[in-house]
Each structure stands twice: as C-alpha cells, then as structure tokens.
Nucleic acid binder design. Structure first.
Lengths: 203, 203
DNA sequence: ATGTTAACTTATCGTCGTTAAGGAAGTTTT
DNA sequence: AAAACTTCCTTAACGACGATAAGTTAACAT
C-alpha cells in the first residue's frame, strides 16, 4: 500500500508536469499548432507516453481548461473580497473577466476547441465538481447579491447571470477570434459594454 | 472570347454546385465531421478536383461564410423595411440575429472554424467587398439612426454597434458551443439580453 | 532465480489536407 | 487530317495528425 501510494504520487507528479508543459506549449504556439506529438517532443518522451496519463487529447484539453478556470476562480475571489458594494463587485467581476480573456487569449481558446459536450451531458455539469462550475456559481452569487440588495431588477437569477456572462464572453471571443475585423479600442468596448449591461439591469 | 466566357460560365456553375453540396454537408454532418474527402465523395469526384475550384479548405469555408452572410443580410434588409421606429428596428435586428444563430448553428460555426485572419489583414476587411462587411455596415446604420433620432445615447457609433453585436453573438456562440452547460431557456435569455442592452443605451 | 508489473518505446493504422504527375478528351493550329 | 495544346479529372503519394498494438526494459516481489 505504501509503495502503491508512492507510485501513484510520482504518477500524479508526472501528470502535472505534462500538463504544465502542455499549457506552456498552448500559450506559446497557440491552439492551432498544439499537437500531441509536439508536446511529446517538448517533454522528451514518445507520443504514446502521454496517453498513459491522459485518455486522449480532449481529456488533456479539459485538464488545461480546469487549470485555467482555477486560476480565474482564484483571482475572482480576491476581487470579490476587495469590494463591499455588490454592484461595484459585479462591475469589477465583469471587467476582470474581460481582462482575463484579453490577457490570456490562448487559454481562452481552449474552451472553444473542445467538443460541445466535453463537460458531460447537460445534467452532469452541475453534479460533477469542476472549476468551471465553481466559477459560474460564484458569479451567480454576485448577481444574486445585487438583486437581494435591491440594486438590480428582480428577475430570474440564472437568466440575468447567464445573459451578463454571454455578453462579456462574446466580447472576448469576437475580438480574439475575428482579428480581421476593425474593432474599436478593446478597453473602450469593454467599459461601454459593462456600463450598458449594468444600466440595463439597474432597478 | 465567346468560348472563354462559356467555359468560365460552366466553371462557375460547377463551383457553385460544390459550394451548395459543401453547405449541405456542413449542415447535416456538422463542422467537426466536414472533410474535403467527404465532400469529394458527396459530389462523386476525387478529392483533388475540389482544389481546381477552391484554393484550399479555408478558401471554401470563406465562400460558405459569404453565402451564409448573404442569406442573413437579405433577411435583415427585409426586417428593416418592415419597421419605421428606429429603436423597434434595432430591437428586431438584434432578435433576428439571435434567432438566425439559433436556427443555423452549423452555419454559424463556420465563422469560428476559420483562421483568425481569413478575411485578410485588419485594413483589408473594410476595403474588400464582403457580405460580412455589408452586414456590419447595415447594422451600424440602424444604430446610427437610433442615435440620430435621439433615442439612444450619443456616443461613438462603432463602439455602440460593436458592443451590441458582440453581446448577441456571445449568446449564440455560448449556447451553441457549450451544450454541457445548464442554460436557461434560450428565448428567455434572448429577450432578457436584448431588453437589457437597449435599456442600457437608452437616452 | 523467477514471475510480475509499470513505464516507455517502436511500429503502425487510419484519416486528414494537399500536391505531383499523368492520362483522356476535346479544341486549336498547321 | 495530323499534330500540338488545353482543360479536366484521375491515381498516387507526402507529411502530419490522433491513437493503438505489441514489444522492451527495468524495477520490484516472491
């Protein structure tokens, strides 16, 4: 049992090492050029070795997603702690989300390189533990606080949360993915959109 | 010259035929399973034949995009003609965009399967003719009308147009791409978001 | 010493986008 | 009418991909 533990400990260590290298490869080379073979080369192992630690490429991408979500989640919690006014908290949370996307375009793209149902079936998402789920729930809480405090209109919390979320995600996605388009200044767009959204749901 | 014309006419005809089959394959099989080889099989020609009519896969995807944008653009013009109140026109335009995305998820995905700069460099987009450009400009015009009529706040037209656009595109993209997530009712989200956006920019 | 297991390799499969080279048919030139 | 050229399409192949099968090596257990 002791040995088993030791082994699985090394195993987990190596897995995390691969993951770290994978994330770096993703960031430096971008999604389009990220391949299992290149990753194998980067860690100086043969390609099949990766498959001993990850079921397949999607599994690995999901793991990267979770790492990214974890990083986002941790910072979001710090932001929440910094503000007392619920509306101010929400504003900063929205702005931080956009900033995170702008600063980490490659990480952000991972989420959209995955299959539509990589997080499982519709019901499974809320049952399984995931940083993606945690991030949504904490964001939902912020919105709920605004409603409870009477600062935002009383309406279905999920509808409000999700409509806010998709709006800011749209900004990040579009500016990242459609670089041919003559976008206005990103930061201008960000503050205009967030202002508009909050104003739109103001009580 | 007459013969040349005849030839290029047939050539164009075949090209459009391939395009039509490609779009159908895209719709029925989805982006992930769309391959040049399958398309070749579908039109009963060998794979390299397609390359006589399209430079490469991206070129073909771009052509599909333009077809989709053309369809969207045509319908959008009809909607504009139907309403006189500028704000009402904008509302319907936003709702139609979302509806279009919901009803044509596969076509919509084409735009995001393309390389970031498939429409050329940043300056080229506005110079070259494209249905994507036309769609943006007509949408921008609607927004401009609302501002001019004093119904929406006076601010940079492009910033307002683009922030509205990315918000609704976010809704479509997220619901299409992240199907594991327990979204609220799509139509509820759509009307809530559009209401919020218009309210947010109201004068 | 022998059997067992884990970790890793090489070799390979099937698929993809794409290109090279060539052939068949029609068109133009002589 | 024969020869040369052009157009259109084919077969064959390249390199890269994700992934699997089968085999090797070394550590460990008995």
């Amino acid at each position: 049992m002791g040995i088993q533990q030791k082994r699985s400990k090394y195993r987990e260590e190596f897995r995390r090492e691969i993951l770290a290298e994978a994330r770096e490869l993703f960031i430096t080379e971008g999604y389009e050029k990220f391949t299992m073979r290149k990753l194998a080369g980067k860690i100086d192992y043969s390609p099949p070795t990766i498959y001993l630690y990850f079921k397949n490429k999607d599994d690995l991408l999901l793991a990267i997603c979770e790492e990214v979500a974890e990083q986002y989640f941790a910072n979001l919690k710090l932001i929440i702690a910094r503000y007392t006014d619920p509306l101010q908290t929400l504003r900063q949370a929205l702005l931080y989300f956009i900033e995170f996307g702008f600063n980490n375009p490659h990480q952000y793209k991972v989420f959209f390189s995955m299959k539509p149902d990589l997080y499982g079936k519709k019901e499974e998402f809320m049952e399984k533990e995931s940083m993606a789920k945690n991030s949504y729930l904490i964001f939902r809480e912020i919105v709920q606080d605004c409603i409870d405090a009477g600062r935002l209109r009383a309406m279905d919390t999920d509808v409000m949360t999700q409509s806010l979320a998709v709006a800011v995600q749209g900004l990040v996605l579009m500016t990242i993915y459609r670089q041919s388009f003559p976008w206005a200044d990103r930061n201008l767009l960000a503050s205009a959109l967030v202002d508009c959204l909050l104003r739109g749901y103001l009580k």
